[in-house]
Nucleic acid binder design. Sequence first.
DNA 1: ACCTGAACACCGTTCAAGT
DNA 2: ACCTGAACACCGTTCAAGT
Lengths: 246, 246
Amino acid sequence: MARTTPDGAPSRSRLPARTTDRAPLSRPVVVEAAIAYIDAQGLPGLTMRSLGQSLGVEAMSLYRYVNGREDLLEAVVDHLVGRLRLDPADELAPADGWQGYLQWLAHGVRALAHDHPNAFPLVATRHPAAPWLRPPLRSLDVVEDFLGALTSRGFSDEAAVAAYRAFSSFLLGHLLLEAASRGASTAPVEEPLDEGDADVPQDDTDLRDYPQTERLRELLSQNHDDEEFEVALESLLDRLDLLVSQ
Amino acid sequence: MARTTPDGAPSRSRLPARTTDRAPLSRPVVVEAAIAYIDAQGLPGLTMRSLGQSLGVEAMSLYRYVNGREDLLEAVVDHLVGRLRLDPADELAPADGWQGYLQWLAHGVRALAHDHPNAFPLVATRHPAAPWLRPPLRSLDVVEDFLGALTSRGFSDEAAVAAYRAFSSFLLGHLLLEAASRGASTAPVEEPLDEGDADVPQDDTDLRDYPQTERLRELLSQNHDDEEFEVALESLLDRLDLLVSQ
DNA sequence: ACCTGAACACCGTTCAAGT
DNA sequence: ACCTGAACACCGTTCAAGT
C-alpha cells in the first residue's frame, strides 16, 4: 500500500543493470555501492531501502552481507581509510625520511577528503574502534604504519605517539573544513518552497549590523585552502622536528 | 495503540514536573531542554517525541516553537555558541592585546566542548549559514567580535581573515577529538547482547599482528590533552605573530 | 543459498479538532 | 492560544516463506 507509487524518481533509468542482470551481491559490492551513493546523494539520503534500490534488490537482502546500518557505515569508513596503507612495493622514503612519509600521508588523506567530501565527516566523527585510535587515522593498519615509519626514522616512542596525536588534530581540523565547503555544493538541493512573505531576492545574508564582516566579506569568501594546508603542514613538521632533535 | 506501554523507562521519576505543573513552553525552554537531553542521553536519542516527553508534552506541541527538527538543532548550536560573545563590560584585553583575546576565545570554545561533549559534534559539523562562516566559530556575532578584536590590535584585513581560518582549523581539530573521547564515556551504553561463539572476555583489541601499536599501547592510551592543546595554541599564536609583524 | 513479503516498532510532520 | 489524536509517509530490522 505504501509502495504503490514508485517514489516519483525514475530509478530505473539511473542504474541500467536491474532485476534482469545484476552484479552478484557481496560485502565489498554493497560497501562500494554505499560509497557511490553517499558521493552522489549525500549521507542523509543513504538508507537501507535506497541502497537496496540502487543495487536492484530489496533492503532486506542487504542484511546478508552487512550487520545492520551501523556496521555498513563502519565498513564504509574502513574501506575509505584502507587506501592510506603503505605499499611495501613503493620505495617511498628511502632518503626522504619521516618528513617524506608524513607529506605522503597528509596528501593521501587530503585526496581522500576531496574525492569523498560527503563521506569524510563519517571518517572524521565516528567513534573509533579502540580508545587510542583517533580520526581520521583510525585504522590499526595505518597507525601501525605510522608508528613504524617514525620510530624507524629517529623518533623515540614518546615522540612518535606525540606526533600521531598532533598529526591527527591537524588533518581533522583542516580537512573537515575543506570537506564541509565542498560537500555543501555536492549535496542535493532542498526544495525551494517559496517563502510567502519575503519581498526581495536576498541572495546574501544581511550584514547591516556587522560592519567588520561586511567589509571583509570579499576576503572571507576567497578560497586559499591549498596554500593554507601546505603552510600549516610545514609549520607542523617544523614543530615535530623539535621532538626528534632533542 | 502504540503508546499503550510507557516505553519501559520510568520517565515520570526522571523529571519531577509533569502534566500537573510544568514550566510554560517557549523557544528558549525547548532549546535548553534539547541541550540537556543531548548532554544526558546523547544526540541519537534526541527525537521530537523523546524531547516532548522530557517536557511533559506531546511531540506535536514542539512545532509551535521550533520549525522542525533541523531548526531545533540549528537553534541548539546557536545557543551554545552564543556564550562566546565578547562581553563589553569585561575589560578583557586592555594590555593583553590580540594574544589575550585569542587565548580567552580558545579556552572559551574548549570549555564549551568539555561541558557539552555530545553536542559539540553538532557545532563542529553542521553546515554554517553562510559559506564564509567556519565551524566552530560559526555565528556572525562571534566572527564580528573576532575580526574587530584583531584589526583593532594591529592586524591587517588580510591577516585577520587568515587568522580566523587558521584559528578555526586549530580549534576544530583539537576539540572535536577531545569531545569524541569524552563523549564516548557519556553515551548510553548499548545492550551487550552476548556474542554466542566468542570464548574469551577479550577486554582489549587483539594486537597480535601490530607490534608497534602493541608496544606503544600504554603511551597511546595516556591523555595529555591539556598540554597538547596549550602547546599547539602557543605554536599557532607564534605563527600568527609573523602575520602581524610583517 | 539467496532473496522477498509482511509485519513491528519506531521516526518526522501535518492538520483538523479539542479545551 | 495552546495542546492533542489520528493519520501519513517514511525509517531499521526480523523472520517465516518462497525459489
